[in-house]
Every structure is written in C-alpha cells, then in structure tokens.
C-alpha cells in the first residue's frame, strides 16, 4: 500500500505486451463481466476507501452467497499436481478442462472417506440454520434466555431435509457460502481475487478455514491474508497477484495460437476461469465463453 501511494496508477495500456490492466481497462473488463455474467455486480464499498481513479460506484466487483458444498480436499480424483497447467503445450483447451467441473463433481460425490451428500447437487437441501456441532454457540450464561414462542404451524421445520439429530454427524452437509470480490491491484496492475466465507451456521470463516476451499497447491503458495482494500476492518484471504500477469499472458497466448481473438474487455472472464482451478468447489458461474470462435 505504501508503494501505491508513491506509484501513480498505470495510464498507458500495457495489455498487449504484459497482459496487465490500466484502471480504465479494469472498469471496461468489469463492465463486460457484469454484462456477460450478471451474478457479478459493481459496488462502491466504504466511501472512505475509494480510489479516485475509479467511478464511485465501480470500485470493485462482488458476487455473494455463493455455495461451496464441500472442501477442495474432498474432491474425488482431485490431483493438485494436475491442475491448471499454464505451461501450455497440451492443446488449446487444456486449460479449460484440466480438472473436473466443480458443479458436476459435487453431484457425484460420496465414496470412501467423503461424507455422503447424495442428491445434494440436484437440489433442495442446503445450509439451513440448524447445523449441529457448533457447541461453542451455547454460551452457558445465556441459555436461560431461551424463548418459548407460541406454536407456529406455518413455520417449516428448520434444517430440513437432512439435518436430523439422529443422523451421524458426517451426513451433515458442510455447506459454506462465499462472498467473492475482485479488486484492482494498483501495484501489480492486475485484478485481485478475495474470498470471504461463512460456515454452515453462518459464522465468518477464518482465513485458515478458507484455505480448505483452495486447492492445496495454491493454498500453500499463493494465498495471503491482507486487509480488504475497500472494506474497513476486514482481513480476508486473497490470491496473491504477483503471478497473475504471467498466467494471463500464457492463457492469452494459448488462445491466440488457437486462432482465437482476445480483447481486453474479456480479461476478467478469462481470469475467472483461471481462478476456478484455484477454488474448485466454490460454485460461482465461470461458464461464459471467451475468445470468440
């Protein structure tokens, strides 16, 4: 951050040479992303933390309440060494399909040590309020506060359909949710991806817990915890941007070699496909196409 105060933001595009973005290009790419994939939206965040080179309401991008049904380490057949080969040489589509689609994987889980969540992918169940196992919620001196409300026949039993006391703990689906942010990193001149998670009882996840949803390879190497640039008081896990430009350069080169086009507006769409390999079980939508046939 100190560096940012003395280094002026990039003004001349270096997209072609270095695959980095100026603030203006970041906004253009963000506009394209919001259009192509409207689960993302622009926000202004804390007015005290605004960057003057961005419009007040386009400081960063966010998508909220994204489900994450299981931990990355539970992914069946997941091999951290096979992920996201940025070295190229495997054909044009290698980077898209280096590991299974997280959405598909979550529907076919349930072997070996992985707790069964059969049917979870197909729908209907979820992180309802009554997840067990959080005994630290039970602060002894306030249990006497328990209320007795009048009978309410119109309330659906909480925690349906899978959270029942007699079921073994392993059958409780550990659905987390994530708020995902994309900010602009002025120093590296690339987008930066942030993960803010909540557990199944909706407590904020600690950064160490967030690591469980990041592929092992990346958790060790590239995740750091830093203050969120636009939200005061919030420290969050983020994927360190120092290698983003290199990765983006290789991805774009692959596209170009395959005879596709790539425009700067599509930067974030491609970026999110790359991020999907880092957070394989967080089910945000990255299925939009890129690079014009």
């Amino acid at each position: 951050q100190t560096v940012e105060t003395v280094t002026p933001p990039l003004t001349k595009s270096q997209f072609e040479e270095k695959r980095v973005l100026t603030p203006d290009e970041f906004v253009a790419a963000g506009d394209y992303l919001v259009h192509a994939c409207p689960t993302w939206s622009w926000e202004g965040g804390d007015p005290k933390k605004r960057r003057t080179y961005f419009p007040p309401n386009k400081q960063f991008l966010v998508t909220r309440n994204v489900p994450c049904l299981k931990r990355a380490t539970e992914l069946e057949g997941y091999n951290p060494n096979s992920e996201f080969d940025v070295g190229g040489g495997e054909g044009e589509d290698a980077w898209v399909a280096t590991h299974s689609n997280p959405a598909a994987a979550s529907g076919s889980a349930g072997k070996g040590e992985v707790p069964s969540i059969d049917g979870a992918g197909a729908g209907g169940s979820g992180g309802a309020g009554a997840a067990g196992g959080n005994k630290d919620d039970d602060i002894p001196d306030i249990t006497d506060l328990e209320l007795n409300e009048a009978d309410d026949e119109a309330a659906a039993p909480s925690g349906r359909p899978y959270l029942r006391a007699e079921e073994p703990a392993d059958n409780i689906m550990r659905t987390r949710t994530y708020d995902l942010y994309i900010t602009y990193d002025q120093y590296y001149q690339v987008p930066r991806f942030w993960l803010v998670g909540h557990d199944e009882s909706r407590k904020p996840l600690l950064p160490q817990q967030v690591m469980e949803d990041v592929s092992e390879e990346h958790a060790r190497k590239t995740i750091t915890v830093d203050p969120h640039p636009h939200l005061a008081g919030l420290s969050a896990a983020s994927i360190h941007p120092c290698r983003h430009a290199d990765v983006m350069k290789k991805l774009v080169d692959n596209l170009l070699e395959a005879g596709r086009e790539f425009k700067v507006e599509q930067y974030l769409v491609l970026f999110l496909k790359f991020i999907a390999s880092v957070v394989p079980t967080i089910q945000y939508d990255y299925t939009m196409s890129v690079g014009g046939e």
């Binding site: 919620d137 328990e146 409300e149």
Partner: peptide, 18 residues
C-alpha cells in the same frame, strides 16, 4: 412469531467471537 433460532435450532441468541 419469528425469533431466529441459534445454530443448534433452539430459540436462543447467537454468539460471534470476532
């Protein structure tokens, strides 16, 4: 009616240690 239950499903306050 409408008090939110805690994580264990009881009508009790929730607690967060931040």
């Amino acid at each position: 009616v409408g008090w939110e239950p805690d994580a264990a499903g009881a009508l009790r306050p929730r607690f967060l240690d931040l």
